[in-house]
Amino acid sequence: MTELFDRVQGLGAHLSDSPFLAIALTITTYFFGTRIFEKLERPVWCPPVVLSALLVAGALVLLSVDYVDYQKGAGWLTVLLGPATVALAVPLAQQIHHIRALWRPILITVPVAATLAVVYSVALAWWLGATPEVMASLAPKSVTAPIAIGITEQIGGSVALMMGGLLITGVMATLFVDLLVPRLGVDDERIIGFVLGVNAHAIGTVRAFEISHTAGAFASLGMGLTGVFTAICLPFAVEFLGGGIFNG
């Protein structure tokens, strides 16, 4: 009987040898997280991924599975972020026709806004004495998650810290847009959508589609262009600033 008990105790470690516990856990909590999100009536301030991540963290503690082991197993899933990033080309290509009608405002706003999003946060963090790793983790915070993971790995940030900052940014930017729209008297759905996509990535895009289809289309476009611009320019900028703030 005690032998059986010992074996049950060792189950968590045994199952961590194969990736399937981690994969099953990730997908299960995804469904539960989404379900809870619906039950809470889709709060903007709490994206489903946060609920799911809390459930995974709780399960890991309960099963006494090490986070590093979980991550190793879940790596079999996260490797799909590669083709999933390429897949983002499809919505981008579908929305790109908006550029033809509005190429001037869009092609000026994206580089300026995407650059300033990085500069504002990195400068504030630097001023308050953040380490290079923290600044590198904050820099891609306005970019959609799959692209931001690629950027963070290139510039030497912490993916976990970046993900936390990215989600908080998405939620806050969405709230700030709701606050500023009436104060600045913005009544153009294209502007609201675009601002949501540029600053609040997927979280803002979901919100924009709640406003209208036009807002959603402009949010997708803003998100895609900001992602592409930041992904190309930020790693090169960090490389050029090689001896600068990012390397202490």
């Binding site: 001037r104 504002y120 915070k141 600053n199």
Partner: peptide, 25 residues
Amino acid sequence: AVGVALVFGTLASVATTMVLMMALL
């Protein structure tokens, strides 16, 4: 540093983008 950068950095960039788009569109 993380908190200030996230809150004020995001507020500043939302405001900038909105003003810029309003001026250009």
